[in-house]
Every structure is written in C-alpha cells, then in structure tokens.
Write a protein that binds this DNA or RNA. Sequence first.
DNA 1: AATGTGACACAAT
DNA 2: TATTGTGCCACAT
Length: 123
Amino acid sequence: MMKRVSSINDDKKDFYQRVFEITRLIPKGRVTSYGAIAKALGATGSSRMIGWALNGCSKEHGVPIPAHRVVNRNGVLTGKHHFNPPSSMQKQLEAEGIEIKDDKVVDFEKLFWDPIKELSEDW
DNA sequence: AATGTGACACAAT
DNA sequence: TATTGTGCCACAT
C-alpha cells in the first residue's frame, strides 16, 4: 500500500506543514520569496497562502521557523510588521550577515535561495 | 452563506 | 519606471 511520502501529499493540512519545512530548510544567511515557496509546493500563484502559513509559525513553538528569511519577490521585508518588535526581522537578518537597506535585502538576487533548485536534488 | 481582508505575484496601463 | 487592477486561496466576521 502507498504509505504517504512526505514529498507527495495532497492534504491541505500538510500545506502549512510543507511551508514550515521549506522555510526551515532555508540556509542561514540566505533568503527566499513567498512565490518561490508557493511554486515549490506546486501552488504557483497562491503565494499569499505562504504568508498565512507563516503567520501561524509563531504559534508553532518547539520548532524555530526562520520566517525572517522569507521576503517578497522584490526583496522587501513586507512582513516585518508581524514580528515583535517589527525591527527584529531586520535585526535577525543582519545578524546572519544579510545587509538591509530601506527594508530591502541588499544583493537579494545573490542571496536568493531557490527551494525548487535545492529540493530537485532529492525530490 | 456571502463578503472582506491579507507576510504576494504578474499583466496591463 | 511606477501605479493600478486582477488572480489566487484560506480565514475571520
């Protein structure tokens, strides 16, 4: 019988879990975008859901979710207002060596970490 | 049940 | 290049 593989699962419930997994996989000092994660999950165009999922990450105690490494496709820290304090997002990024200028990630393209590219190795 | 909102992204203007 | 409108899907009221 088919035991559910972690990679292939249509349960919506796992969608959030999937987002957490990928977010957790973001290497230190790197960033990714909501759209990239959505695409990696096969939910292209549903990038807004990523934000919703991450919104609950704060409540997922026990597993640290580096949500601060997720920004929009423009490299802007759009979700900083959901941190407390909001400035902590930039602070954490800077602590990892990421430079922030005007709420934007410097060299975003260079620091961008594509989940699909990484996941395609094993998945 | 319907409507509005949201941590986005893309096309058109 | 910047703004605006539309699509997307889940959740709150």
